[in-house]
Amino acid sequence: MNIAVNIPDAAKPPPRIRVDLQQVADLVPAGSRVLDVGCGDGTLLAYLTRFKQVDGRGLELSMAKVRAAVSHGLPVIQGNLETDLKDYPAGAFDYVILSQTLQATHNPRAVMEELLRVGRRAIVLFPNFGHWRVRLSVMFGGRMPVTPMLSDAWFDTPNIHLCTVLDFIDLCSLMRVEIEMGFALDALGQRLGFAATGKRANLFSEQALFVLTRP
């Protein structure tokens, strides 16, 4: 049995993780208390634990992924973010991370409320449905878009509440949530050279990354 190989070694230079996860990791100050909601097999959590010395926890729906994460020594539990975030006390974490998951929830607004109750800040990463490729696909193709960011056909996509960057910003203002930081990203997760909150980002960013807090 050789299961410890994927745990990064602190003595060596940090390994490469997916660019979008790296963008998220860079926003987390060292030593924070972090909850990664929808943490998958714990790649980001392992990185944060090892290289940012965070006190990290994970919540993941897929039992297979939970097993993988716990097998790597990470404190991850199986659970559903839409029902299980309520178990945590208010302010239990400095940062709650929701990466590529908001659009797959039944009630994104309620989820956002819970993220900002449980955490002092929330980091949310989601695909932008306002990207020009999406718009062209519907306009000229006449069919639901299949793009690098949204690679599933309409009948088997988990994404039921897709939104554009501007939609997201509207929701934040409706919920009186403050956007502390925002980044427009390309499909890989690299930062684009324009503001994340404007019309340009709404047309040209494939995904968006926001740090939110309750004023």
């Binding site: 939970v66 716990v70 790597h72 539990i77 199986q78």
Partner: peptide, 29 residues
């Protein structure tokens, strides 16, 4: 600080005494 895993097994309660690779791997990690 809590980890929680449900191991897929059809062996019932006795599974904790038996050779269940997912269980052993979880414990090892």
């Amino acid at each position: 600080n809590v980890s929680f895993v449900e191991v897929e097994s059809d062996k019932g309660h006795d599974a904790f005494l038996l050779d269940e690779p997912d269980f052993h791997q979880t414990l090892q990690g």
